[in-house]
Design a protein around this nucleic acid. Structure first.
Length: 873
RNA sequence: GGGUUCGUGGUCUAGUUGGUUAUGACGCGGCCUUUACAAGGCCGAGGCCGGCGGUUCGAAACCGCCCGAACCCA
């Protein structure tokens, strides 16, 4: 007998195991080549692991722990995507400096220091929640060892022609003063603006009126356009006009993309107002008039307006247009504006010398199709985004805290030199390339000051965790990812792995949904529906939080955080603990497994059920259906194991002969031990504590194996199910009658609808219901009165096809007594359909009968799904 | 405007290829201290499965339209 504490205290247990797991190496992968590798997405170190992150990490942890149990050598690393603009901004704020106030290296150091503290906070939360990363394989993209590999990937892609440098219009954030990629531009809808109607004077012909929301771009106007089918302008195409205030001349062109319903039907083309302008500019080989500077002012090319901010220029130019008589009218309008996703500043399109990565749509989609998307439809999002890509990926950024682009420019001949792989990691702003210019022999180099987009770092994680390039690349097993970043993270990672290794990055990509507050809205502090994972742990436990995440919905769908799920999980934990405590009272510390236990039907039943459950739960886990897996486990543990099985074997455990008692003990141990192991991915703390409390277990449950039960046995399971159902029926009846559950009864008779093939063993059942139990074939010897007819649609449907409805209706209108008699005597029923008679097989109809006690012995008749139970009080 | 997903008791959720009485949880009402467990057990009420139409002998499921919600994109 083993003493196990009365109650489970999650606070102390979780604290204890958190510490001990750090000492043990159950989560570290030691082999030469792992079987199951998670390409953990490195989060941006915001300092706060919120509940939405936690959902994704729960999924990873379920998968990691399951695969360890299943015998895989699992690599579950944790990385941090450190570089980026928000950190620079934060450090500038904290230190009250501008990044140019201090040397580049010093500023970088400040960023690193800030990032480290942010990481510490998030790592703490991860450990609080019991995530089983292998911390020996932690990586930070700001470490030389990492960003050196980012540079290597850059160098290789440059060699393959994927990376190139060119002048091309790019999205530009005037506040951050850097280029940004399409994915970093967010469209703000319904922004209020003004539509101005402006006259352009004709050069040697009539004037024309255009409509624009951006008069500040007049200086950049290089052409005008109308719809070729627009009759108003049919004979004007090719005419020349003078740009108001600025005086340069532009020509009117015709293009299908002009919306004739907008404004006057005529628009100006500027370099650049939007992407449409870029298209026209390229298509018609127009001039380039760049009037915006990198910091959002007007340039020298804007004449008198040079130096004004974009906003001031708009105001000034409008005023002047009005004063000069060019402005005819203005009206309010709403428009969609592209904004920087980090600072919401409206983006501009500037033509700049930048570094690009070629977007090969076909290659990306071919690769993406080879990845298993869970759920499948998430692939569509990637496809839609990829097919809509218009520009190559601009990867250069004019910032500091990021991976340097390893390139130098020769001051004497202009040659660009990209670093050799052997020279990485390279800091071109500090060191030279170590060679003379291969073109002109000069050693007068200028290092590239541009750095790389952070996605360049985070899109090589599958390569990095696979020890590329030392090891030949093999796809990782799993990438978990939120559906909001498919177009960025998933997209870039697929692009890069395809480009560098011509491979898929991962075999499976599991997309997790968003977590909403319990009012169904996005979590936000202002709505008051915001929940921090730590709060849940404090209130209940990490295990309960994890279960709530698993049960919130099937992976892929958005889930609502529900406190009630956490409550329900806590109750389940209490139940598991109590079962363990009960088992501890009956299991010897030094119990030896029996070689040939004298199992009874109840034992064979629970073992057979456990075998089925282990197989089904494994299937669910393989398919990432964590909700279904945990649901099935709870059902089994709570109802089969606790409610039914434990009750059935109490007789043997307390008063049985040693052989029978020991068989029950063995089956109990087997079923409980299997249950704990299967639950351990979801509730690692509770199951570890219970595992250690349970006699004859060794080591950590997380180093144990998935149950290998080969005890499925349909016959015994049917017999056992009958026993369990009967016990449950009698228990329910006693409760309803207000009787003590251990009250003695004179006799119980069971008449199953389907008699099990094997003889039913009633020993345990008798003990459980406190009465002799007889299982009998046939129908009870109490008076039965047919009262209703219930045709079986699944038999009648296929047999009578389009007549089925008629047959069912006729059957239901028949006298139940007549039907019953025919069924009993002939095993078939003649049904009169009015114009013809058909014969229905006897088993296609259930005649519902009510039991009416005969005079004499008092009997209670309980009708159940599985048969009829007669209770003689 | 385009794409994707989703509408199931008061709330959240399951429902694999169509087939008897639609799953579970939370909440609600009632009863019960029993040799693991009152943080428990047992019982009960509560659903025209968003609406309409179609396919079918039979639809929560399949098809069409409509209404509503969410996300992504333009």
């Amino acid at each position: 007998m083993t003493e196990i504490p009365d109650s489970y205290d999650p606070d102390s247990a979780e604290q204890k195991w958190r510490e001990q797991w750090q000492e043990m190496d159950v989560y570290s992968y030691e082999g030469t080549k792992p079987d199951y590798v998670i390409d953990t997405p490195p989060p941006y170190p915001t300092g706060n692991l919120h509940i939405g992150n936690a959902l994704g990490w729960c999924y990873m942890d379920f998968a990691a722990r399951y695969h360890r149990l299943a015998g895989d050598d699992v690599l579950f690393p944790q990385g941090w995507d450190c570089h980026g603009l928000p950190t620079e901004v934060k450090v500038e704020e904290n230190e009250d400096i501008h990044r140019t106030d201090v040397p580049r290296e010093d500023f970088r150091e400040m960023c690193i220091e800030h990032t480290e503290s942010q990481i510490d906070a998030m790592r703490d939360t991860m450990q609080t929640l019991g995530f089983s990363q292998d911390w020996d394989h932690e990586f930070k993209t700001m470490d030389d060892g990492y960003w050196g590999e980012t540079q290597r990937s850059f160098v290789r892609m440059a060699e393959e022609g994927y990376v190139y440098q060119d002048e091309h219009p790019v999205n530009w954030c005037p506040r951050c003063e850097t280029a940004i990629a399409d994915a970093e531009v967010e469209t703000e809808e319904g922004v209020e603006g003004t539509l101005y109607y402006v006259t352009f004077e004709g050069v040697g012909n009539d004037d024309i009126e255009i409509a624009t929301t951006r008069p500040e771009l007049l200086a950049a106007c290089v052409s005008m356009a109308v719809d070729p089918d627009d009759e108003r302008y049919a004979d004007r195409v090719g005419d020349t006009f003078e740009v108001p205030l600025f005086g340069h001349e532009v020509e009117l062109i015709a293009d299908d993309d002009v919306d004739g319903d907008f404004g006057t039907g005529a628009v100006m083309i500027c370099t650049f107002g939007d992407k449409q302008d870029v298209d026209w500019w390229a298509e018609y080989d127009l001039d380039l008039r760049a009037v915006f500077t990198e910091d959002g002012h007007l340039s020298e090319d804007a004449g008198d307006y040079a130096g004004l901010t974009i906003e001031d220029a708009k105001e000034q130019i409008t005023e002047d247009l009005h004063a000069e008589g060019y402005l005819n009218k203005s009206e309010p309008t709403t428009q969609n504006v592209g904004q920087c996703w980090r600072c919401d500043t409206p983006i501009e399109i500037l033509s700049k010398e930048q570094w690009f990565v070629k977007v090969d749509q076909e290659e990306i989609l071919d690769t993406a199709q080879e990845v298993e998307w869970v759920p499948e439809h998430m692939y569509d999002r990637l496809e839609e985004w990829t097919e809509g890509m218009e520009w190559d990926w601009v990867i250069s950024r004019q910032r500091v805290f990021a991976t340097p682009i390893p390139a130098w420019f020769c001051e004497s001949c202009g040659h660009t030199h990209i670093a050799e792989e052997d020279d990485l990691p390279a800091k071109p702003t500090e060191d030279g390339p170590g060679i003379d210019c291969p073109e002109c022999g000069s050693d007068d180099w200028t290092g590239e000051t541009d750095v790389m987009d952070t996605w360049m770092d985070s899109s090589i994680t599958p390569l990095f965790v696979r020890d590329w390039p030392q090891a030949d690349f093999e796809p990782t097993s799993l990438r978990p990812q939120g559906h909001d970043i498919i177009r960025t993270w998933a997209f870039y990672t697929i692009l890069r792995t395809a480009a560098i290794e011509d491979e898929i990055p991962w075999e499976d990509i599991l997309i997790n949904g968003m977590v909403f507050g319990n009012d169904g809205n996005k979590m936000s502090k202002s709505r008051g529906n915001f929940v921090q994972p730590e709060e849940v742990v404090e209130e209940h436990s990490a295990d309960a939080f994890r279960q709530a995440m698993a049960l919130g919905g099937q992976p892929g769908s958005d889930i609502q955080f529900q406190w009630k799920e956490v409550t329900s999980a806590s109750r389940f934990q209490t139940k598991v603990w109590n079962i363990t405590r009960f088992a501890g009272q009956h299991l010897e510390d030094d119990r030896e497994p029996l070689t040939d236990p004298a199992y009874r039907d109840a034992d064979r039943w629970i073992l057979s059920r456990a075998s089925h459950v282990a197989a089904e739960v494994a299937d669910h886990m393989d398919e990432y259906r964590f909700d279904a897996a945990l649901r099935e486990l709870r059902e089994f543990v709570w109802h089969d194991l606790a409610d039914d099985y434990l009750e059935l074997i109490k007789g043997r455990l307390y008063e049985g002969r040693p052989g029978e008692r020991d068989a029950a003990r063995q089956a109990l141990f087997t079923a409980l031990s299997a249950s704990l192991r299967m639950l351990s991915p979801f509730a690692p703390f509770l199951t570890e504590e219970a595992w250690h409390a349970l006699p004859s277990t060794e080591g950590s449950i997380h180093a144990a194996e998935w149950p290998d039960l080969d005890m499925a046995d349909e016959e015994s399971e049917a017999a056992g199910q009958l026993i369990a159902d009967t016990a449950s029926t009698v228990r329910g009846w006693k409760s309803e009658e207000g009787m003590a559950l251990n009250a003695d009864l004179s006799k119980v008779e069971v008449y199953p609808d389907e008699m099990p093939d094997a003889a039913v063993d009633t020993y345990d059942l008798s003990e459980a219901v406190n009465a002799p139990v007889h299982v009998r074939a046939g129908t009870p010897s109490v008076e039965l009165v047919p009262v209703d007819i219930d045709p079986d649609h699944s038999t009648i449907g296929p047999e009578f096809r389009d007549q089925a409805g008629e047959v069912v209706a006729a059957l239901e209108s028949m006298d139940p007594e007549v039907v019953k008699r025919q069924q009993r005597l002939d095993d078939e029923i003649e049904v009169d359909l009015g114009d013809e008679e058909v014969v229905v097989p006897g088993d296609a109809v259930d005649v519902e009968e009510q039991h009416q006690a005969e005079s004499g012995e008092e009997v209670v008749v309980l009708d159940e799904d599985f048969g009829t139970v007669l209770v003689y009080p």
